[in-house]
């Protein structure tokens, strides 16, 4: 009798653990089912799956970078401005007739330096990353306006520049392929390399990591640098997708990127930023935007619903952990 009780309790515990670990994923699946039932002819189609994968690709890529910085317990508020700058530099280089591979890679190198500088200021002078990167974002915004004179760069952009953002590979958008490759790559880096483990160790306890001989500054600098590179790549890909670069195009990605990271922290690894979690978080945000638009829900209601879901996910995860 007593044993039975234990078994039931153990079962409940397992179910609870399952909900805590996969609750966000389950909620995502529920949302997909709900949209599928409400709009089978538009939402639940292969074409729309492709649509969503392309639409979330940019958010996922920029959010992967935010995940790295969040993993070491810091914030990078300049990701949106970095994306805008990356897109503008790439588009302007393309207009001036430089080879496309160079247009696509030069912004990433510039971003690496800027990101590393962000990290260096934070670690060297022990300034809050919140403030440093906010200031850097303002600087980058100014640079972007200076480069463009405030105008959108769209005239004389060669067709080859649009290829990456607008072409398909075996019927799958190249953007989606890039997103998957980068997600797998960064999942591997974060989970299976000493670098990834060091980032998590720093995020968990910086002092202990330092005592254990981890070069905290260098690892943090690299997290900021990679974050900036991914942000710039997002900007380059967005410019390629739109066939134009708007001086504020990246701004809209900044908050959703962190929303994806926080939603992701409620999935898979409890309370820890993780790559697949971020992917699921971005997917939920993307699917909500797509599905609600297809259902013709007004924009204001979309914002309310999306915000509530992020808050609900975080609260549920806390409740699941027994914290109040």
């Amino acid at each position: 009798m007593q044993q039975e009780g234990r078994v039931t309790r153990a079962g409940a515990l397992n179910a609870g653990k399952l909900m805590r670990t996969y609750g966000t994923v389950l909620a995502g699946i529920l949302i997909v089912i709900a949209f599928g039932l409400l709009s089978p002819e538009s939402f639940a189609t292969w074409e729309n799956v492709i649509n969503i994968s392309r639409q979330i690709s940019l958010l996922v890529i920029i959010a992967l970078g935010a995940t790295l910085v969040t993993a070491v317990g810091e914030f990078d508020l300049s990701v949106g401005a970095m994306a805008s700058l990356g897109g503008v530099i790439a588009a302007q280089m393309a207009v001036s007739g430089m080879p496309i591979w160079l247009c696509m890679t030069a912004p990433l190198l510039i971003a690496f330096v800027i990101g590393y500088l962000n990290g260096w200021i934070v670690t060297r002078f022990r300034v809050l990353s919140f403030i440093t990167t906010m200031a850097m974002g303002t600087v980058l915004g100014g640079l972007t306006f200076w480069l463009t004179g405030g105008s959108t760069v769209f005239e004389h952009i060669p067709d080859a520049f649009r290829r990456l953002g607008q072409s398909d590979w075996l019927g799958i958008p190249l953007l989606s392929v890039i997103m998957i490759v980068l997600t797998v790559l960064f999942w591997f880096v974060m989970s299976h390399t000493p670098f990834g483990r060091r980032l998590y160790a720093i995020g968990g306890n910086e002092t202990a990591s330092r005592m254990a001989g981890v070069n905290v500054s260098w690892n943090k600098n690299m997290a900021f640098a990679l974050c900036a590179v991914l942000a710039a790549l997002t900007g380059v890909l967005m410019a390629s997708r739109l066939g134009s670069a708007h001086p504020t195009s990246g701004g809209g990605l900044f908050l959703p990127a962190y929303a994806a990271v926080f939603l992701g922290m409620t999935a898979f690894k409890e309370g820890v930023p993780n790559i697949w979690g971020t992917f699921v978080g971005a997917a939920i945000i993307g699917i909500l935007a797509n599905g609600l638009t297809i259902l013709e829900v007004p924009t204001f209601a979309q914002d309310i619903i999306t915000g509530c879901i992020v808050v609900a996910a975080v609260i549920l995860q806390r409740l699941g952990r027994g914290e109040r």
């Binding site: 189609t45 649509n51 639409q55 997708r241 739109l242 195009s249 701004g251 935007a289 297809i294 924009t299």
Partner: peptide
């Protein structure tokens, strides 16, 4: 059906694709 993306052109492109799908 009014869709507003608050200055975000990437979103605008995505939402237009959704409207074409629907």
């Amino acid at each position: 059906n009014v869709v507003d993306t608050k200055g975000d052109f990437g979103q605008l492109a995505s939402r237009m694709e959704d409207l074409i799908s629907s």
